[in-house]
Structure formats: C-alpha cells, structure tokens
Design a protein around this nucleic acid. Sequence first.
RNA 1: GCUCCCAUCGUCUAGUCAGGCCCAGGACGCCAGGUUUUCAUCCUGGUAACAGGGGUUCGAAUCCCCUUGGGAGUACCA
Length: 518
Amino acid sequence: MFLIPLHHNLKKMIDPNVRVRFAPSPTGPLHIGGVRTALYNYLFAKKHGGKLILRVEDTDQTRFVPGAESYIIESLAWCGIEFDESITVGGPHAPYRQSERKDLYQQYCIQLIDSGHAYYAFDTPEELEELRKNAEKIKKTFTYNTESRKNLYNSLTLSEEEVKRLINSNVPYVVRFLIPENTEIAMDDIIRGRVVVKSETLDDKVLFKSDGMPTYHLANIVDDHLMEISHVIRGEEWLPSLPLHILLYQAFGWNLPQFAHLPLLLKPDGNGKLSKRDGDRLGFPVFPLQWFDSKCGEISSGYRESGYFPDAFVNMLALLGWNPGTEQEIFSIDELVQAFSLERVGKAGSKFDPEKTKWFNHQYLIKKTDQELAVEYQPFLKEKGVEVNIKLLKKIIGLVKERVNFVKELWEETYFFFHSPEAYDEVVIKKRWKPDSPEQMTSLAEMLKSVDDFSTENIDVAISVWLEKNQFGMGAIMNALRLLLVGASKGPHLTDIMAIIGKEETLHRIHKGVQTIK
RNA sequence: GCUCCCAUCGUCUAGUCAGGCCCAGGACGCCAGGUUUUCAUCCUGGUAACAGGGGUUCGAAUCCCCUUGGGAGUACCA
C-alpha cells in the first residue's frame, strides 16, 4: 500500500502553529499595497490551517486618524479577509490594540536596560535636529550610533547619579537600543534568502519615547513574541529595520519568527512606490473603499464604490507579486488559498496595472449568472426611474453582459430596452439614413403590423421574406432600422431587441424616427 | 551621501535555486484579419523582452564579478 506520500504531504501543509499577523497603523485609509499584505497573510494562514491576527499599531498618538481603524476592518471584510483574533473578535492575547498594551512594554524596556542592551538618552529633539542639519551641510547624515553616542547626552556618558537626578526631576528622556560593536547580523528571509549586515551601519534606535509610549520597533517585537507569531509577512519597507529586530529578539533571548518581506507595489507609469496621488492623476482607485478625509474634505475613490467585485479585486491583487507557476489566472479565494506559497512570491516590485484590473472584473462579471447581475443592476435602474420585472431583466442582461466591465456600464448597453431614443447619432444618420429610408421604414412598419407572435424567430422570418420580396439589401435596411430603434449603431441582435420591447413600441419608434430624422 | 534590496516583452509574469528541452512561454494592452445587419463579444494571427560588459563552462536568461538603472530605509512615524 502506498498511503504514505499523500498522508505525509497533508501533514506537512497543515500546521496549526502557524500564526501570522497583519499590523496596520490607523493613520489613514489602507491602500491596496496594505490590502495585499493582509491578503498574503490570510492566504498563508489558511493554507496551513493556522491563525490570522489583526493587531493595531497605534503607538503614535499624534498620527491617529479617527475612522481609520474601522475603515481597515471594513475594507478587509469586503475582501473576504477575516481574522481569528483582533480588536473586534478578541482572542487569547487581548488586547490587540497597542495603545491598550502600553503598560506591558515598559517592563520589557527596563529588562533591556538592566541587561545592558539599552540606555537612557536625554538629548532633546531640537538638539538632534541641529546635529542633523549640521551633518547635512557637509553632505553627511547624522546617526546616533556607536561613535556619536560617546559624545551625546545619555546614560553612557553621564554618571549614574546624574542620570538618576535627571529622571527624578522629570527631564524628558528616551530609551535607545545599544547596537553592539563589530558584529555581523545574519538574517534569513523566505523571499530574499540570507542577508548579512555589519552592526556599524546600524543606529541606536529609540525604543521608548518620552511620551511613555514604545516605538514601533519595541512594541512590534514584544507583541510578536507574546502573541506567538510564527511568520512575519510584511512589506519590503521594513527590510532595513530587520537587523535591529533580530538584535532585539537576541537581546531578549527569544526565538526568531520566520520573516518574509514582500516586494512593493509601484506606480503604473514611471518609478516609485504607488501613492494616493497616482490614483488621482491616472484615474484609478488606490483604496479598497471610498475614503472621506475629514481634515481636508477630500474624497478618495474606492474599488468597491467604483463597481469592482471583491473577488475580482482580490484575484488581481494576489497575482501582483505572486504567481502559481501555471497559466491559471482566475482564482477564487479558496483556490488562492490552495495554490499560495511564499516561495512563489517574486523579489522585484510590481507596477500596478489598472487596465488588467478591469479585465479581471470583466472575467468575473461574465461568470456571474444573469440572476445575480439583475439583482445588482436593479438599484441602478431604480435611479434611472426604470421599473422592469426580473425575468425580463435577466433576459436583457444575458444579451449584453459580455460587453461590459462593470454593472454600472450596463446602462449604456441597455437603455434602449427601456425607452425610445432621445437622440439619433449624427454620424450614423449620415452613414445609414438614405433618401429612400423613410419610405422603406414605413413600409417595413406596415409589414410588421401583421406579425402576430412578435418573437425573435417570427420577426426574423418576416423580415427576410419582406426583404426578398422587395429586393432590399439586408445591411441597408437593418442599419437604418437600428438607428430608429436604438438611436445609435450599437446593441445586440436587432430582432432580439424588437421582441423584447414589443410590437407596439417597435412601430412607435419607427414612426417617431421617420418623422424626427430629416 | 550612506545601508540594504531588486533587474526577462509597454505592464503582470513563466523559465533562475538543481546551466542544455528557451533564437525565451502565457496574460493584459495594442495592431491586423475572420465571424456579424451595427457596436461589442468571440476566434485567428501579429507586435514586443533576457539592462550593459566581463568571466566560469563544450554550453548561460539561468552561476560569479563589475557597471548602469530602479526601489526602500536613513524620525522620540509606522
């Protein structure tokens, strides 16, 4: 019996110890790059039967934006990304908001000071700013590092008594990490392989701010450890701080999680990271949901409001930086879960392509049933003051859905089913409306009157008999007739339209058109 | 400037780890033809890339080095 391989594979894939987190900062709306990071975390967790945690990193009180937190949750929910542990559903490691875990970080900070891995620094922001400016003047960058810390105002240079005195007299201070001298830090990244840096190139980052809050670096490591995070999957912008993070884990004596730094999403034209501006400039949404900035009153468009289907949006995002290695492009979220692996995430940044995003939406739209589309289309029709029964609407949609990318575009392809043309396209008149057209059309109307069962098939037969009898060309007649019925040179099969709008309306449109077009 | 990361069609990418099956495959876009009473869909075809230079090798898109280009980071932001 050869049962072992299958069983073995299954066992290897399913790992309940997999715990990943998405850790946004509530400083504004989440842009599609952030959504993709969340998505990859989700896919990875699901694939391995592990857990996905949402942790809000709100340690910078000055940048807090009201509504950002709920925006993030709503956006991801729209994408179908659900969390096993979060600020809303709770979990064994609650609270999941760092501002609510404030007291926790202090003890870890003290632990680092006591073990000699961190120190107090009393330099004011103004003093440091001054040093940076001076360094800039001679084309250098000031860094608080192994060299400069020897000449600055900190517990390394000050006497123990002086440090105590300063702290007791409430002089503001920060805690900085003491970067070790002359060591190399080796980092293993699932996507990038091994990266080695020298400790001299690092600076003594602030771990604890003078306002009593930890910085990202401290809070992040402490929480990832406490929350038993197994894999840290985040954007490439964090790669430069990875050595610091590794050093932090080592200073605490904790086991390292595995790291995977995702490539960035780049703007469609030119170079650089995708930003809100690009969306405004090139006319595509950068955010999953519409966002209203109460500060400046600006509205940024969202994929949801623009008419994208969440599954199409997710599908597009998944393929931006990851690929399955096969030629399959259309994936349901469950298929993505099955196919996903961090090993197949590329290293280079991806330029975002708004055109292909539309194509994805089109693929999902044509896959939907007429029933589903009819339900989604109804609100648009209501807005136009059109009432139509669902059975007929399904039929109409079936005729035109291949032509559109979005539900909202259905109107341009279907309005003529609901009312007679308000105008006739001048270009088409010039091309299709001949001197004998009025007479021909009137004669055609007369003939159509006698078609009792006004079905597509019957009309087709009646017209071809009539054309034969009068020796009229199919092209000339049908194009002129389309002009009268639709008002333009577009739309599905003409007799399908006629059957749907009915005999009376067809005759009405012919007579009205003949009178209107001169 | 410094540190780190990256480099295949215009774009997303396969192929790179285990060099020959690749004068490089797919998709989006674009162009042309076909189907069609219109427009669109659809079908067929086409367009178009291994950044450059050195090595290593019988053989390199694939390995190594350099150059160039791009990106990120360089805050008491995350």
